[in-house]
Design a protein around this nucleic acid. Sequence first.
DNA 1: CGGTACGTTGAGTCATATCAACCATAGTGG
DNA 2: CCACTATGGTTGATATGACTCAACGTACCG
Lengths: 233, 233
Amino acid sequence: MPMISNQINCDSCFISTHSLFRHLSADEFQNISLNKITESFKRGSIIYQEGNRMKGFYCVHSGIIKIFKTGFDGKEQIIRFAKPGDIIGYRSVLSNEPACTTAEVIEDCIICNIPATTLFHLVKTNGDFALELMQLTCKELGEANEYPTDIAQKTVRERLAEIILNLESEFGSDEDSVLRITLTREEMANLVGTATESVIRLLSEFKADRLISLNGRKIKILDKPGLKRIATL
Amino acid sequence: MPMISNQINCDSCFISTHSLFRHLSADEFQNISLNKITESFKRGSIIYQEGNRMKGFYCVHSGIIKIFKTGFDGKEQIIRFAKPGDIIGYRSVLSNEPACTTAEVIEDCIICNIPATTLFHLVKTNGDFALELMQLTCKELGEANEYPTDIAQKTVRERLAEIILNLESEFGSDEDSVLRITLTREEMANLVGTATESVIRLLSEFKADRLISLNGRKIKILDKPGLKRIATL
DNA sequence: CGGTACGTTGAGTCATATCAACCATAGTGG
DNA sequence: CCACTATGGTTGATATGACTCAACGTACCG
């Protein structure tokens, strides 16, 4: 399924100056560059699956990936999305456990696979890197901790409004306020944690209330303050 | 509110051989011992609160602490409990953000406060410690990721059964299968993410079905397989 | 002995899930 | 090229789980 594409050069990769990797020395960079494998995936491909043993983690170069868990009845719960600059799969690598989520490509992507040993070595020898990675983990943990409160205490209506706003702030919108990311109704439902039909009904309600307009999977925000009010943010 | 008690000696503390601290050198231990402050708290005391800037993190020596978030309407959502050997508050310290949860004492506790600078220093200079801490964070993250699926896809009934089982495996039970930890009905509700009345009704249902028996706040498990079946584990 | 916090039970309501039918679209293979 | 099938989207009808509100019981505490 994955296509091994031309290697991407870490030195010229925009991601290297951001985030996690900014504290690496030239040597350390070189080491990653030599050991990583660049792969490209089409929409629908599975990068890794719940239960897989991971031999490395991934750095997203382009595209969008959804990270989800599968419930006992097969229903998916989307945990988060990964976009360029994000890294995925590192949790399982670090804790040396099988993956507890599945990563599926939503928009065609190019990702670099960096072996586990490289990661461990960096953590052990580069304190700044370790700290940076830990802060990333802590940030994710903080976000993950928002979930229960959110799901347990808000109505589906409130959560849907919130998620539309989140999608805009995470993936942006074009000059017409049309969200860049497009999801199926089912994916939206799996993100909100509700039934597909409920999402459909609520989206039409929002549309009737002039909060959004719809064109297939494209969602355009017409009244952001209104959505915020509903989301109670 | 906190009582500064006699210092606990890290060398003789059972926690030092477990977990996080096992990779520390004698010097590093010494350093912690010198800089930490041991405090004792009574049930109901607040150790830290949502929004607080943390000047250090805590290592729980004895007692039980609940970690929760407060919803916009004041309803609490319990995220997890901390018991002897656990460390709390490190997330906010590491990511240098205000605390996003509140920590309240459920059973009288003794905790050691270790300053932020000590933590940062250890992460930067001791790779094994960094790795161990990261694995702890990742473990928590993995658990936190279970939540959404759980809350979104299970009924309150299923979740309550699951939580009773979790409380047993986390805090144990005496020879009569009576759970060691005792919570108010409201706390149970805040853990499950439901209304107090719902918990009460479901507990009496479980009792009527001979799955548990109740004696005030004491819960006795009569039929563990039955509970597992309900929890669909 | 009032007061406060916790626990319990009942009744009514509502949001949301579920089930079912149907439409649109696109891809597939004979 | 057309029937066939799969996938996604939509709408309606119905059922029900869980919340809310309200009243009341119980126990401990100063």
